[in-house]
Amino acid sequence: MLPALILLIVVLSFLTDGLLAKSNIINVFSQSAVVAIAAIGATFVILTGGIDLSVGSVIGASGVASAWVMSTTGSLALGIAGGLFAGAAIGALVGATVAKLKVVPFAVTLAGLYVVSGCTTLLVHGKTIGPVPTGFIQFSIDGPGGVPDSVWLAVVLYVLAQVALTRTKWGRRVLHVGANVEVARISGIRVARTTLSVYAVAGLFSAIAGVVLTSGLAGASASMGSPLLLNVVGAVVLGGTSLAGGRGSLLRTGIGVLFLGFLSNGMSLLGLQDYDQQIVTGAFIFLAASADGLARWLRRRSTARRGPSDPQPQAAGMATG
């Protein structure tokens, strides 16, 4: 996917004015930070063959939790801790339902989306929680080298996550569970425990994203995260991580996030209306996902014994691990 990203940037820089200006590039990274962080958690979940539809709701819930704690206790640290705890707890609950009760992730996280969103909105009576400390708002506006702290945070988290995936036992377990649950189980991996941990980790990253979003918006509302689900899953898919699980990396997701970020930025610079941008984004997500399978299909056209290639055209996120 990296060549595609580079190509995109090159083409866009010819078509537009100022895409490669330093302030614009910083702009792209800064606007992608929240999605990027949430996409880390989503990548882990998708690597196990699952899916997390509740990302948006957890972002809202943890943002609200952190903003609320901040405004009642006046403490930034407590607020952040509160938000992170809320997200991780929700994630663990979802994970437990998937792993122990063996409910399909699609359904659990869909239910989670509703329940979490409803609870959060109810608790805040539909209002927005704010204001938040000015120092907190600065986190998303400025930082070393003119690059906002939120971007540095995202970068650090990506490095840590990639290391966790490739160098730790936990990461290897995640990959094995995603590749083949049966084999993983037989080889002694505690599948249920790994699955639960993955969703808890996803909840934690959604929470970090929620806290960063609260900083960026100077306040938290229950629904602020719901439009992000599309971008988060889209970024993972664009990056090339397979929905079937077992194949992928944080690096890929990072490239997917940047692809979406530059695409959106480029379209804005081109003066494309919002709705036309949606059409283009949808087309790109589909094309990126199909390029791989399409190539394989074209090769196999003459001996069409199987229908479309390996990733069966069924609903993803059906693995119950």
Partner: peptide
């Protein structure tokens, strides 16, 4: 898209979810 390209339905319809809404917005001018 689902039948011919082997892309999982989740992704296909995620993409068309975006594209169709954009097309609708284009027609109505929001």
């Amino acid at each position: 898209a689902v039948a011919m390209t082997g892309v999982p339905a989740l992704i296909v319809t995620l993409a068309t979810m975006q594209a169709f809404r954009g097309a609708g917005g284009h027609i109505t001018g929001q």
